[in-house]
Design a protein around this nucleic acid. Sequence first.
DNA 1: ATAATTTTGTTAAAAGATTGTCATATCGAG
DNA 2: CTCGATATGACAATCTTTTAACAAAATTAT
Lengths: 212, 212
Amino acid sequence: MARNGSYVSEAVIRRMPKYYRYLEDLEKTGVERVSSKELSQRMGLTASKIRQDFNCFGGFGQQGYGYNVSDLKKEIMKILGLDRTYNVIIVGAGNIGQALANYTGFEKEGFFIKALFDINPKLIGMSIRDIMIYDLDSLEDFLAKNPIDIAVISTPKDKAQEVADRLTRNGIKSIWNFAAIDVAVPRGVIAENVHLSDSLYTLSYRIRESLE
Amino acid sequence: MARNGSYVSEAVIRRMPKYYRYLEDLEKTGVERVSSKELSQRMGLTASKIRQDFNCFGGFGQQGYGYNVSDLKKEIMKILGLDRTYNVIIVGAGNIGQALANYTGFEKEGFFIKALFDINPKLIGMSIRDIMIYDLDSLEDFLAKNPIDIAVISTPKDKAQEVADRLTRNGIKSIWNFAAIDVAVPRGVIAENVHLSDSLYTLSYRIRESLE
DNA sequence: ATAATTTTGTTAAAAGATTGTCATATCGAG
DNA sequence: CTCGATATGACAATCTTTTAACAAAATTAT
């Protein structure tokens, strides 16, 4: 996908979803074209950076015109892999697991939650938006019978690595982890660790800093 | 807090919560001392980077010995502003708002949720872990009577900026935003934007990349 | 007590990311 | 159809971040 199969830096990749967000907004408000300068003002980035970011993946713009909003959005969707669907399971049907299952927004982008798993007998057998909560014991069985692209880990911290191991042993290649550890995965498996508390502590860092 | 009031880069700041996590684990497992080399192996960073990061804030280590785990942890807690407590409110008692209110982990670090706010009549009057859900109309009144340090925004996307404006107009100086926009805040106000979907799309980017 | 080892804090070098500049292409007005 | 304005894509320069190297200090072993 990168221009010539060449390396695209982490910094650029992390900005792509942000571009997607802003382009979606522009498209929704009926804007047809946008220049890097205009985008830069809205997004708080430099125009140069924006042009260079897009050029990591190919020349989507036109001199004298700028970028066509919906074309560019489509290109970025392709880059981000949002031109297909994903089957997702959630392991851990506690606070975060339930919140994610209840949220319908990810479905709109092609991420379909197929099942939840937990060890709590009170939860097993229940369902959230018609998504069943299964006994964690049946995880292996479920994975053998259903093609799952992404597994979300939303268990307590101390169970997360064990769950990650079970998932990867049973063919899971991508993990979206919400537990407060960085889960270790074998080569060939992708793990994206979300650390909400890290974000909160960055905020409290800035509060302290502002009081100096 | 920075060594001599000098600037500490964003990259360093973002790593501090991660150090805190690992140091907490080490402390819990009874480890007394740790070297930058050992930490680097656990955390997947270079020892050099770790030493330089800590030195942005002062020399916490000792040659030939390394770092005392609990001392270093305490220093990082100070740096992150975790040596005090914060009063928090949550605006938007939907999926994410409720999940955050139900989660008891933040309290352990000194973040106390004092109230939730929503516009949904079915939610108003209810409570989560003894935290009341109030009518959003009473937000101004509540803020006038209670000293609040941090406001969480977990409303739908299209209400987030409006809520942010109301919050800052009424004295809120720090916002932890979960809505899928970057909320704009006046100078002097701190906003930390969490974009869960950005994280998910980064994962799908990598999935696509791995299939090339 | 001494020597060898460990490990920091610091400085310098290397790598990486961002910004500024400019030639060139396209657009749009007259 | 021509000219001026606009805006990209590419490259060079700058700035930032990371890595490597090393002297100095403390620890540990003998």
